[in-house]
Design a protein around this nucleic acid. Structure first.
Lengths: 186, 186
DNA sequence: GCAATTAGTGATTGAGTACTAACTTACTTC
DNA sequence: GAAGTAAGTTAGTACTCAATCACTAATTGC
């Protein structure tokens, strides 16, 4: 397998592992095991653990952004809103590690900025802005609606992270589609 | 100082440290240093690191719940909403570690449940329900408004975690009061 | 005044972990 | 078929960290 292909599978494996354990709660050995490769080999593919985390974080934003962009393609306003809400529901059901990784990325910023890692926060914030713009335009550039959509998304992320089963009361009041699929499967 | 008083200051110190580094990114020595006590002594006050984390997490929920309950005391509907929004703004400005610790608690659930720690998720979810009820009643038991309020709260948490400065565009569309004070100070 | 309890420390241990160095194996190319 | 290169491994290092043990100093109760 080529190094580039390996790097891809490392990113996928790292996303799953970091999504569960966060940066400090995930060992490079766990990632290597999931990839099916020796642990030291990771350091040939990436300069270090932080680089792996960052690559996974960026890939994660890419995928969510792409899901929203594809869902809303050619649509505006309410139609785009529903399309994107459904798309997010699919992400929750099929790729829960994407949103868990997002959460892990957010909480990693403060610690990273306190240590020397001052580039990390910029990357995360840039990712958020990319997500923001991606939903902003299809929603007719309406700031309030964009904020609303993202706010509900973050609430859903938190509920999923906490492990509330989809039939639980807390899902009342959310997109019906999200309610029916909110379980984080293992 | 009595053991009980010490435990209190450990909880305060642990909240601050865990809020920054999360469970795995925080050493018991860092907590001990902040308390001004030797690291082994923590294990006389608490059975282990997990117990310290859990105590801090529960305390954190207590304080936020109390802030909301006090703010909304005697108020209903819109008045209660504004009072609680202002209260949350004050928490953001004065006790940012409370909301960062909440985020850290949420992302810690999945990892904890995967290992043996199956009680942890229940505690976190119970804390969320307590918070939910605390805002639900003053808002006239309106589920949609409750969901809305909490959704905006979670969005604010994420923005604060990412370190967006209060004058940044992403704060547009949020409570004006939150916009003016959203910075996480160090 | 002494016995017991309480608050607290220093030294240590054993497990885990990011990362390095040196080596191996297989494929390509001339 | 030799030389080079790309993919991958084994062994090891230096370090961090949660937790334990054995000990000390002060306070309290009788």
């Amino acid at each position: 397998m080529s190094a580039e292909e390996r790097r891809e599978s490392v990113i996928r494996a790292a996303t799953a592992e970091f999504a569960r354990g966060g940066y400090h709660g995930t060992s490079t050995e766990a990632i290597a095991k999931r990839v099916g490769v020796s642990q030291p080999y990771l350091f040939r593919l990436f300069p270090g653990k932080k680089a792996i985390f960052l690559a996974a974080a960026e890939r994660c934003v890419d995928e969510v952004v792409r899901a929203f962009a594809e869902a809303s393609e050619g649509l505006r306003g309410e139609a785009a809103l529903h399309a994107m809400a459904n798309a997010y529901t699919r992400v929750i059901a099929e790729r829960p590690e994407l949103l868990m990784m997002q959460m892990q990325t957010y909480v990693a910023v403060a610690a990273a900025e306190q240590e020397g890692e001052h580039g990390f926060g910029d990357v995360v914030r840039a990712g958020w802005m990319r997500l923001w713009e991606t939903v902003h335009l299809p929603l007719g550039a309406d700031i309030d609606q964009t904020t609303d959509f993202l706010a509900y998304g973050m609430l859903i992320n938190c509920l999923v992270a906490m492990g509330f089963p989809p039939e639980h009361r807390v899902w009342e009041g959310l997109y019906p589609s999200a309610r029916s699929k909110g379980r984080l499967e293992h």
